[in-house]
Write a protein that binds this DNA or RNA. Structure first.
Length: 280
DNA sequence: TCGTGAGGGTTAACTCTGAG
DNA sequence: CTCAGAGTTAACCCTCACGA
């Protein structure tokens, strides 16, 4: 396994292993991008190039060439790259204190080169893993940002509902039932939920369900089976929603993910991983 | 047969306002 | 801070058609 460098251009370390780390609050993806049309994810997105820059268009605005870019949750965007692989990181906005994120997310004061190098180093480290370990959000945060990201303080009643959805995003939760469970009226629950999370209850649920698909992207079953497993009523609805969120039809996503290694849950332990955590 | 797209009706959810 | 009601919105669900 390779020892991680702490500085300098490390792009030569990154091989061709496609990898995705999945925790309930984070997705770290290194792999094919395809040619997505408009996409709109419910997570805070960070894209990082591995070699050549990519082009990004936010909310129908101007195209910009970038090596590193942040897209806020639920913002329509389009991304194009000629590079075979791209790195992307998704952070569930309700899981972090948005005012205490690393510089790259919060403002122009970020040292882009250093951040890019750190991300590339982290992915290079991930690529040295030769078995399927289990992942903890805390470990991955330390690897990528050098520290655990500060959690968001949410109203306990909203947090309880969010936690329930996090544990089973494929389930169906009516706002009415959730309100009753929280001891709130229907209208106040919806109001409080949006106030706390910044997103409407239904939108939140729809995103979590679309996100749950990621756990299945290297399966070879029929899409209808996967759609049903993820909680969609049929393949039509599945196809439509996934295309809206990821900008690609499910068939294309699954075709591009056949050789994707998926790491999930907890805890994750390798020599290189331990070294990088110790150095962080 | 399977995956996808489009259209239309239904209904749950959203937003706003006002009141206790 | 909480609740209730009314009007609006959009997600859901169903059906059908088309192409591979």
């Amino acid at each position: 396994m390779k020892q991680l460098n702490s500085a300098g251009d490390n792009r030569h370390h990154i091989g061709h292993q496609r990898i995705m780390l999945l925790t309930p609050d984070r997705v770290f993806y290194l792999g094919l991008l395809g040619a997505p049309s408009l996409r709109k994810c419910g997570a805070l997105m960070l894209y990082a190039s591995l070699d050549s820059p990519f082009s990004l268009c936010l909310d129908g605005g101007h195209w910009a060439q970038r090596e590193l870019a942040v897209v806020p949750p639920h913002v329509c965007h389009r991304i194009i790259t000629n590079a075979p692989m791209i790195a992307s990181i998704m952070i569930e906005p309700e899981s972090v204190n948005l005012t205490r994120l690393p510089d790259v997310f919060t403002g122009p004061s970020c040292d882009e080169t250093a951040t890019l190098n750190r991300i590339r180093e982290a992915y290079a480290c991930l690529q040295t893993i030769d078995y399927e370990p289990r992942v903890k959000t805390l470990d991955v945060d330390c690897l990528f940002w050098g520290r655990a990201l500060a959690p968001r303080a949410l109203d306990a009643r909203v947090a309880a509902i969010i936690n329930k959805i996090r544990h089973d995003p494929t389930g169906h939760y009516s706002a009415c039932a959730c309100a009753a469970e929280s001891g709130l009226s229907f209208s106040h629950f919806l109001h409080l939920f949006k106030q706390e999370t910044g997103v409407a209850f239904r939108k939140f649920q729809a995103w979590k369900r679309a996100r749950a698909m990621l756990y299945h992207v290297n399966r070879r079953d029929a899409l209808i089976d996967i759609a049903l497993d993820v909680g969609y009523p049929d393949s039509t609805h599945f196809s439509h929603t996934i295309r809206q969120v990821y900008g690609l039809p499910p068939r294309e996503i699954f075709a591009g993910s056949r050789h994707l290694m998926i790491l999930r849950q907890e805890p994750l332990r390798t020599d290189a991983w331990q070294r990088s955590l110790a150095a962080a």
